[in-house]
Design a protein around this nucleic acid. Structure first.
Lengths: 217, 217
DNA sequence: ACTCTAATTTACCCGCGAGTATATTTAGCC
DNA sequence: GGCTAAATATACTCGCGGGTAAATTAGAGT
């Protein structure tokens, strides 16, 4: 049964609106559940680490059995990948949001930093930071790398924009982007959600530090 | 790892086979061999990750069998811990070195940053950054936490010193230390030893960035 | 009522890898 | 050479956990 796919074209048959509505509902339902699986995995990974979390653990937390998890996700690796992607998307969204802004490069960069900090303190943040290509198949690893690179390029573009509009001084664009990303990513290592410090506040101090520097002006 | 470890992260690949190679002429130096085990483990962990490295792998790289590894080390966890400690020691040394200096706080901080970058690009760097309390027993985890905290406190002390001697402007000491440590630790994620950029150069740019900030002066 | 599929479970397999009991080799020593 | 202890090897155990086959239930569509 699992291997055989005899009727492949049945979903294609035209049907009335009613059918589509309920099919749509079922699809949405499935997606909702799949998301729940991924979010639960993200929390578990964050709390105990990827390798210290078994799929049985995740299933148990969902009040379900392991094969059910496999019904929504191909394997453990993909689970990690999805968490990864979810986290990266949050950041990417922040960058894209600033594409339309007309403020200075420095201000746009500050806005991106704020969203970045927000993303990194989410459950997906940990996965994003900790998920090493080492735990992913070559294919997945390539995808992750490419997504990360997109973000890196986005940040560099903002720095360049700032330099050319005069809001950011001349600097090593690459190292600056790395330092920024590093400081931000590292938040995932020390941040505890019960912390008094909200992500927004952290971002504020980081922006202050990176804009003004340590040396008195 | 007793004191004398490679300060420059020169190719330390020679750790393994040579010591065991010639059956007749080998020097039986327990300490040395133990260090070789730890260094080999560090390299393996860095290359493939802690959980993706078996003790058989490490043994093989040393041209030895698993029980031999166990002869020098209690278990896998301790191996990770030792790598950890070795890395942290490199950084701690850098901090301690500046205790006697009489320059400004800002200059001492810059010196510490340079040593920190050096340490983080070593094989132990990866372990230090990646080793999560999650992979360590409560006891080990506590020790690691305490060592990390020592470093954090050391950096904060330098910042305070800088503020009070006027070389560093008033700032959020805690967040500044976190941002710095984050940027530095993150180097372990992107640095490849074949990179053109030496640790010293990275440190230089980081110091520039953190001291002067992005906003034009 | 009946059917067909998607969702979920029960009950398994199996390989990997941490850790070990035990034998064997080697080095130092008298 | 023969004794002892350290060093290393051979050859295991064993449980955890990823993954799966097959049976069962729920539910929409007709």
């Amino acid at each position: 049964m699992a291997g055989r796919q005899a009727r492949k074209n049945s979903p294609q048959r035209a049907a009335g609106p009613a059918l589509w509505a309920s099919v749509g509902a079922r699809v949405r339902d499935r997606e909702r559940k799949r998301d729940a699986v991924i979010m639960t995995a993200a929390r578990a990974f964050r709390e105990r680490g990827y390798h210290n979390t078994s799929l049985d653990d995740i299933a148990r937390e969902l009040n379900v059995t392991k094969p059910t998890v496999y019904h929504y996700v191909e394997n453990k690796e993909q689970l990690l990948f999805e968490c990864f992607r979810a986290g990266l998307k949050l950041i990417m969204d922040g960058i894209e949001e600033q594409r339309e802004s007309t403020t200075t490069g420095r201000e746009r960069l500050a806005a991106v930093i704020a969203r970045y900090a927000e993303a990194i303190t989410s459950d997906f943040g940990w996965c994003m930071v900790q998920a090493e290509n080492q735990d992913l198949s070559p294919t997945m690893s390539r995808k992750v790398k490419s997504l990360k690179s997109e973000i890196d390029q986005g940040i560099r573009a903002l720095i360049r924009a700032g330099v050319s509009d005069g809001s950011i001084r001349e600097c090593d664009e690459k190292m600056t982007a790395f330092a920024l990303a590093g400081a931000l990513n590292w938040i995932a290592h020390w941040y505890r959600s019960d912390d008094k410090l909200a992500a927004a506040e952290i971002a504020l101090r980081f922006v202050d530090l990176f804009e003004l520097g340590l040396q008195p002006r």
